[in-house]
Simulated assay, not measured.
Amino acid sequence: MNILIVGAGATGVAVGVRLTQAGRDVTYLVRTERQRILERDGISLTEPDGRHSVSAKTVTADTLTGAFDLVIVAVKASAIAAVMEDIVPAVGPATVIVPFLNGIRHIDLLDGRYPGRVAGGLIKIVATLDERGGAVQMTALAEITIGSLGTEPMPRSVRQLLDVPGLAVVETDEVWLRLWEKWAFIASAGIVTCLFDNTVGRIQEAGGLRYIEAAIAETEAIASAAGYPPRAAAHRQSINILAEPGSPFTSSLFRDLAAGRATEAEHILGDLANRARELSVTTPLLDLTLVRVRAAELSRQRP
């Protein structure tokens, strides 16, 4: 059985290296420039236990042919529209598409384009790219959660393909709940760190704990109104991460913003704000953060 990983960013590389090491047939769908680098240097993963390097099989959108058993989508939200068209040759009648993006909107888009082929997926991993394009995993956590989005069960082959050393795979009947829980956390992390332009430890030191708690309450209220109230364990995890004294934690949204890169603000925060209005949930901190991030994005586009 074969696997197509769409995107060779930190998440795609970290997952792909482990799958390749376990003998899985992995191909990366990348752009031409990235293809040249991967074919020349291979692909690597640096983790707390050491560094691993493997060769990389790659294709570009114009050379992609033949259906794959599993398509893993691991790109930024801004690329999802192009990805939906690029993967057309890879999606056959038995293909399963598992996206590892934050939020929900990408699922609506993918399922609209490939009805019945999309499964729910999320990954918990702290990783970035090094200067040579390899993945650097900063903690031991690498957990994938998958589940059927409808009434049909998840094909057993998907878990079997993903269940390799170094990746913990959780299959659940409540994947929509898990997706909303992660979205609520990612959004609250983005609100706190982008609004106050700092790490959660310094925000607390400055007296911001009540705003951290308020941001979590806002995003969880939206999830609850949508029919997916976060479990107590998920709430505790959000508090533990975002209210840890002295923590250097920042959100990926904040890091992109600080670096002057394009952000996933509309996918993570904008879509959530739209759903909040539809559900009549008041979100003052979310709304303020959106103005702050949108203004920064305008400055980036028009210096």
Rank of each mutant, 00 (worst) to 15 (best):
D62M: 09
D62C: 13
D62F: 08
T63Y: 09
A67G: 09
A67M: 08
A67L: 10
F68L: 12
D69F: 05
V73Y: 05
A74W: 08
V75W: 02
A79C: 07
A79H: 11
I80K: 04
A82P: 10
E85M: 06
E85R: 14
D86F: 07
I87N: 03
P89A: 02
A90M: 06
V91R: 03
V91Q: 06
G92T: 03
G92K: 03
A94Y: 10
A94V: 08
T95M: 07
T95W: 09
I97R: 05
V98N: 01
V98E: 04
P99K: 04
L101K: 03
N102Q: 13
I104D: 00
I104C: 03
R105H: 15
H106R: 00
I107Y: 06
I107S: 05
D108S: 05
G112E: 09
G112M: 09
R113W: 11
P115K: 04
P115S: 02
G116D: 10
R117M: 05
V118E: 02
A119V: 01
G120R: 01
G120H: 01
G121F: 00
G121L: 05
L122G: 06
L122K: 11
I123R: 01
K124N: 15
K124P: 04
K124Q: 15
I125M: 02
A127G: 04
A127W: 11
L129N: 11
L129K: 15
E131D: 13
R132M: 10
R132A: 15
R132W: 00
G133H: 01
G133P: 04
G134C: 12
V136T: 11
V136L: 01
Q137G: 13
T139W: 08
A140K: 14
L141Y: 07
I144K: 02
I144R: 00
T145G: 05
I146R: 02
I146P: 02
I146N: 02
